[in-house]
Amino acid sequence: SEEELIEKAEKLRKEFEFIWNGIRFIIRENADEIRRFEELLKE
Score class of each variant (00 low, 15 high):
5 L>W: 13
14 K>C: 13
23 I>Y: 00
21 N>G: 04
7 E>R: 10
24 R>K: 06
19 I>C: 12
8 K>A: 10
27 I>Y: 02
10 E>F: 01
18 F>I: 04
38 E>P: 05
38 E>M: 13
10 E>K: 09
9 A>Q: 06
22 G>R: 11
31 A>Q: 02
23 I>N: 02
12 L>Y: 02
19 I>Q: 00
3 E>I: 09
39 E>T: 03
9 A>Y: 10
35 R>Q: 05
20 W>N: 00
26 I>P: 04
21 N>E: 09
8 K>R: 06
31 A>Y: 12
24 R>H: 05
42 K>I: 09
7 E>T: 11
5 L>P: 04
20 W>L: 09
32 D>G: 09
34 I>Y: 06
11 K>I: 07
26 I>T: 00
40 L>R: 02
16 F>R: 00
17 E>A: 04
16 F>N: 01
37 F>S: 01
1 S>Q: 08
16 F>D: 00
38 E>A: 13
39 E>W: 04
18 F>N: 05
20 W>V: 09
13 R>A: 12
16 F>H: 00
21 N>A: 11
16 F>E: 00
38 E>H: 12
43 E>N: 12
22 G>H: 13
37 F>H: 01
30 N>C: 15
23 I>D: 03
9 A>S: 07
25 F>M: 14
9 A>D: 06
18 F>A: 05
35 R>D: 08
36 R>D: 04
22 G>P: 00
31 A>K: 03
20 W>P: 00
17 E>P: 00
20 W>R: 00
17 E>V: 02
22 G>E: 14
11 K>V: 01
13 R>K: 09
25 F>Y: 02
3 E>C: 14
4 E>M: 09
31 A>R: 07
24 R>F: 12
25 F>S: 13
30 N>T: 13
39 E>G: 01
22 G>D: 11
1 S>F: 06
34 I>F: 04
6 I>L: 12
3 E>F: 06
41 L>N: 01
32 D>S: 07
2 E>C: 15
23 I>P: 03
18 F>Q: 01
34 I>H: 01
39 E>H: 03
43 E>I: 12
36 R>Y: 11
23 I>E: 03
20 W>I: 11
36 R>T: 04
21 N>V: 14
17 E>I: 10
40 L>C: 14
42 K>V: 03
36 R>S: 06
41 L>Y: 04
24 R>Q: 09
19 I>N: 01
15 E>R: 10
15 E>M: 15
41 L>H: 01
14 K>M: 06
36 R>W: 13
5 L>Q: 07
32 D>L: 12
11 K>T: 09
12 L>K: 05
22 G>I: 15
13 R>Y: 13
32 D>F: 10
40 L>T: 02
36 R>H: 07
31 A>G: 03
35 R>L: 08
37 F>V: 05
29 E>G: 15
20 W>G: 00
30 N>D: 04
25 F>N: 14
39 E>C: 13
25 F>W: 12
19 I>F: 12
2 E>S: 14
41 L>V: 05
34 I>R: 01
9 A>K: 11
17 E>R: 02
